[in-house]
Protein backbone atom coordinates (compact mmCIF):
# COMPACT_ATOMS: atom_id res chain seq x y z
CA UNK A 1 0.00 0.00 0.00
CA UNK A 2 1.34 3.40 -0.93
CA UNK A 3 2.40 5.49 2.05
CA UNK A 4 1.87 9.26 1.79
CA UNK A 5 3.88 11.64 3.96
CA UNK A 6 4.87 15.29 3.82
CA UNK A 7 8.50 16.27 3.38
CA UNK A 8 8.30 19.85 4.62
CA UNK A 9 4.93 21.33 3.75
CA UNK A 10 5.32 21.65 0.00
CA UNK A 11 6.68 18.30 -1.06
CA UNK A 12 4.74 15.05 -0.95
CA UNK A 13 6.74 11.85 -0.52
CA UNK A 14 5.07 8.58 -1.46
CA UNK A 15 6.66 5.27 -0.54
CA UNK A 16 5.76 2.62 -3.09
CA UNK A 17 6.27 -1.13 -2.87
CA UNK A 18 5.18 -2.46 -6.23
CA UNK A 19 1.97 -0.49 -6.10
CA UNK A 20 0.74 2.54 -7.96
CA UNK A 21 -0.53 6.06 -7.41
CA UNK A 22 -2.19 8.49 -9.79
CA UNK A 23 -0.61 11.93 -9.86
CA UNK A 24 -0.98 15.09 -11.88
CA UNK A 25 1.06 14.92 -15.04
CA UNK A 26 4.50 16.45 -14.57
CA UNK A 27 4.29 16.87 -10.80
CA UNK A 28 7.14 14.45 -10.00
CA UNK A 29 10.22 16.30 -8.76
CA UNK A 30 12.47 13.39 -7.74
CA UNK A 31 12.41 9.70 -7.02
CA UNK A 32 14.57 6.97 -5.60
CA UNK A 33 14.37 3.33 -6.59
CA UNK A 34 12.74 2.08 -9.75
CA UNK A 35 9.62 3.74 -11.13
CA UNK A 36 7.63 3.91 -14.30
CA UNK A 37 5.56 6.93 -15.26
CA UNK A 38 2.70 6.20 -17.61
CA UNK A 39 0.41 8.88 -18.87
CA UNK A 40 -3.22 7.98 -18.47
CA UNK A 41 -5.66 9.47 -20.91
CA UNK A 42 -8.90 10.92 -19.66
CA UNK A 43 -7.95 11.03 -16.01
CA UNK A 44 -7.72 7.27 -15.70
CA UNK A 45 -11.42 6.61 -15.79
CA UNK A 46 -11.63 4.55 -18.93
CA UNK A 47 -13.44 5.50 -22.10
CA UNK A 48 -16.53 6.79 -20.36
CA UNK A 49 -14.47 9.06 -18.11
CA UNK A 50 -12.55 10.33 -21.09
CA UNK A 51 -15.73 11.28 -22.87
CA UNK A 52 -17.19 12.86 -19.74
CA UNK A 53 -14.08 14.96 -19.23
CA UNK A 54 -14.07 16.07 -22.84
CA UNK A 55 -17.69 17.07 -22.63
CA UNK A 56 -17.55 18.74 -19.22
CA UNK A 57 -14.24 20.52 -19.67
CA UNK A 58 -13.05 19.46 -16.19
CA UNK A 59 -9.70 18.60 -17.66
CA UNK A 60 -7.12 16.59 -15.79
CA UNK A 61 -4.07 14.90 -17.22
CA UNK A 62 -2.91 12.19 -14.95
CA UNK A 63 0.01 9.79 -14.87
CA UNK A 64 0.27 6.46 -13.17
CA UNK A 65 3.41 6.06 -11.08
CA UNK A 66 4.34 2.48 -10.31
CA UNK A 67 7.36 0.77 -8.81
CA UNK A 68 9.56 0.42 -5.76
CA UNK A 69 11.02 3.33 -3.85
CA UNK A 70 10.07 6.85 -2.85
CA UNK A 71 8.61 9.34 -5.28
CA UNK A 72 8.46 13.07 -4.52
CA UNK A 73 5.73 15.31 -5.91
CA UNK A 74 5.36 19.11 -5.81
CA UNK A 75 3.45 21.75 -7.73
CA UNK A 76 4.52 25.41 -7.99
CA UNK A 77 5.58 25.44 -4.31
CA UNK A 78 1.91 25.13 -3.30
CA UNK A 79 1.11 23.83 0.17
CA UNK A 80 0.10 20.18 0.26
CA UNK A 81 -2.74 18.77 2.37
CA UNK A 82 -3.25 15.07 2.98
CA UNK A 83 -6.80 13.73 3.07
CA UNK A 84 -7.65 10.20 4.20
CA UNK A 85 -10.85 8.77 2.79
CA UNK A 86 -12.73 5.87 4.32
CA UNK A 87 -15.37 5.23 1.75
CA UNK A 88 -16.62 8.80 1.56
CA UNK A 89 -16.53 11.07 -1.44
CA UNK A 90 -14.18 14.02 -1.82
CA UNK A 91 -15.19 16.87 -4.11
CA UNK A 92 -12.19 18.84 -5.34
CA UNK A 93 -11.22 21.07 -8.23
CA UNK A 94 -9.03 19.24 -10.74
CA UNK A 95 -6.50 22.05 -10.38
CA UNK A 96 -6.17 21.32 -6.64
CA UNK A 97 -5.80 17.54 -6.89
CA UNK A 98 -2.16 16.43 -6.82
CA UNK A 99 -2.05 12.71 -6.15
CA UNK A 100 -4.35 9.83 -5.18
CA UNK A 101 -3.84 6.20 -4.33
CA UNK A 102 -4.62 3.93 -7.24
CA UNK A 103 -7.41 2.35 -5.24
CA UNK A 104 -9.39 5.58 -5.27
CA UNK A 105 -11.81 6.18 -8.11
CA UNK A 106 -12.00 9.59 -9.70
CA UNK A 107 -14.91 11.02 -11.61
CA UNK A 108 -16.71 14.22 -12.46
CA UNK A 109 -19.85 15.73 -11.02
CA UNK A 110 -22.02 18.70 -11.76
CA UNK A 111 -21.62 21.67 -9.45
CA UNK A 112 -23.84 24.22 -11.08
CA UNK A 113 -23.42 27.86 -10.28
CA UNK A 114 -20.78 27.24 -7.62
CA UNK A 115 -18.29 26.04 -10.19
CA UNK A 116 -19.00 28.97 -12.42
CA UNK A 117 -18.56 31.39 -9.54
CA UNK A 118 -15.11 29.98 -8.83
CA UNK A 119 -14.00 30.78 -12.31
CA UNK A 120 -13.90 27.09 -13.10
CA UNK A 121 -16.35 25.14 -15.19
CA UNK A 122 -19.69 23.84 -14.14
CA UNK A 123 -18.16 20.51 -13.16
CA UNK A 124 -15.86 19.33 -10.42
CA UNK A 125 -13.77 16.22 -9.79
CA UNK A 126 -14.82 13.58 -7.29
CA UNK A 127 -12.54 11.12 -5.53
CA UNK A 128 -14.15 8.07 -3.96
CA UNK A 129 -13.07 4.96 -2.07
CA UNK A 130 -10.64 4.19 0.74
CA UNK A 131 -7.13 5.56 0.77
CA UNK A 132 -5.17 8.78 0.76
CA UNK A 133 -5.24 11.78 -1.52
CA UNK A 134 -3.07 14.90 -1.61
CA UNK A 135 -4.51 18.33 -2.38
CA UNK A 136 -2.63 21.52 -3.19
CA UNK A 137 -3.65 24.94 -1.91
CA UNK A 138 -2.24 28.47 -1.91
CA UNK A 139 -1.17 28.59 1.73
CA UNK A 140 -2.02 25.78 4.16
CA UNK A 141 -5.71 24.90 3.97
CA UNK A 142 -7.95 25.39 7.00
CA UNK A 143 -10.29 22.47 7.58
CA UNK A 144 -13.72 23.57 8.80
CA UNK A 145 -16.41 21.24 10.11
CA UNK A 146 -20.00 21.82 9.12
CA UNK A 147 -22.79 20.52 11.34
CA UNK A 148 -26.55 20.93 10.94
CA UNK A 149 -26.43 23.60 13.66
CA UNK A 150 -23.46 25.45 12.21
CA UNK A 151 -23.70 25.94 8.47
CA UNK A 152 -20.69 27.54 6.81
CA UNK A 153 -20.39 30.18 4.10
CA UNK A 154 -17.27 30.19 1.95
CA UNK A 155 -15.89 32.65 -0.54
CA UNK A 156 -15.83 30.85 -3.91
CA UNK A 157 -12.25 31.98 -4.49
CA UNK A 158 -10.99 30.34 -1.30
CA UNK A 159 -12.87 27.04 -1.65
CA UNK A 160 -10.60 24.04 -2.26
CA UNK A 161 -12.50 20.84 -1.50
CA UNK A 162 -15.13 19.23 0.69
CA UNK A 163 -16.12 15.81 1.97
CA UNK A 164 -19.18 14.41 3.66
CA UNK A 165 -22.87 14.78 3.23
CA UNK A 166 -23.15 18.45 2.42
CA UNK A 167 -25.72 20.41 0.50
CA UNK A 168 -24.39 23.51 -1.08
CA UNK A 169 -26.20 26.43 -2.44
CA UNK A 170 -25.23 29.64 -3.90
CA UNK A 171 -25.84 32.73 -1.88
CA UNK A 172 -25.87 36.09 -3.50
CA UNK A 173 -25.68 39.42 -1.80
CA UNK A 174 -26.13 41.31 -5.01
CA UNK A 175 -28.65 44.10 -4.75
CA UNK A 176 -29.19 47.47 -6.30
CA UNK A 177 -26.27 48.89 -4.34
CA UNK A 178 -23.86 46.55 -6.10
CA UNK A 179 -24.69 48.29 -9.32
CA UNK A 180 -24.68 51.72 -7.75
CA UNK A 181 -20.94 51.33 -7.21
CA UNK A 182 -21.21 50.36 -3.55
CA UNK A 183 -20.51 46.65 -3.92
CA UNK A 184 -19.43 44.87 -0.77
CA UNK A 185 -16.93 42.76 -2.68
CA UNK A 186 -18.35 39.71 -0.91
CA UNK A 187 -21.33 39.42 -3.21
CA UNK A 188 -21.22 35.67 -3.79
CA UNK A 189 -20.79 32.92 -1.24
CA UNK A 190 -21.29 29.20 -1.22
CA UNK A 191 -23.34 28.06 1.76
CA UNK A 192 -22.67 24.52 3.01
CA UNK A 193 -25.31 22.77 5.12
CA UNK A 194 -25.35 19.26 6.54
CA UNK A 195 -22.47 17.21 7.94
CA UNK A 196 -18.96 17.30 6.59
CA UNK A 197 -15.63 19.04 6.22
CA UNK A 198 -14.73 21.96 3.97
CA UNK A 199 -11.17 22.87 2.99
CA UNK A 200 -10.49 26.57 2.42
CA UNK A 201 -7.21 28.22 1.45
CA UNK A 202 -5.95 31.54 2.87
CA UNK A 203 -5.92 33.13 -0.56
CA UNK A 204 -8.50 33.98 -3.16
CA UNK A 205 -8.44 33.08 -6.80
CA UNK A 206 -9.73 35.76 -9.12
CA UNK A 207 -13.38 34.93 -9.50
CA UNK A 208 -16.41 36.41 -11.09
CA UNK A 209 -17.64 37.34 -7.62
CA UNK A 210 -14.35 38.92 -6.69
CA UNK A 211 -14.54 41.32 -9.54
CA UNK A 212 -18.05 42.55 -8.98
Amino acid sequence: MALFRLQGSRVLAVDLTDDAVKARNGSMVAYTGKMTFKRLTGGGEGLRGLVTRRVTGESMTVMEVKGFGTCFFAESAAEINLVRLDGEKLYVEASNLLCTEATLRTGTSFTGLRGASEGHGLFTTTVEGSGQAALTSAGPAVVLRVTPQTPLSVDPGAYVAHTGNLRQHFQSGVNWRTFAGEASGEAFQIRFEGDGLVYVQPSERVTVGGQI
Binding site: T150, S153, R177, E182, G185
Partner: peptide, 20 residues
Protein backbone atom coordinates in the same frame (compact mmCIF):
# COMPACT_ATOMS: atom_id res chain seq x y z
CA UNK B 1 -10.76 45.42 3.01
CA UNK B 2 -12.84 44.19 0.10
CA UNK B 3 -12.46 40.50 -0.79
CA UNK B 4 -10.44 39.33 2.22
CA UNK B 5 -13.15 37.22 3.90
CA UNK B 6 -12.64 33.56 3.02
CA UNK B 7 -15.31 31.83 5.13
CA UNK B 8 -17.67 32.40 8.05
CA UNK B 9 -20.01 30.67 10.46
CA UNK B 10 -23.11 32.39 11.77
CA UNK B 11 -25.27 35.21 10.56
CA UNK B 12 -23.11 37.86 8.93
CA UNK B 13 -24.03 40.45 6.33
CA UNK B 14 -21.57 42.38 4.24
CA UNK B 15 -22.34 45.92 3.27
CA UNK B 16 -20.49 48.20 0.96
CA UNK B 17 -19.94 51.63 2.40
CA UNK B 18 -22.32 54.30 1.32
CA UNK B 19 -25.58 55.80 2.29
CA UNK B 20 -27.72 53.52 4.37
Amino acid sequence: QRGKMIAYYGQIDFHGLGHG
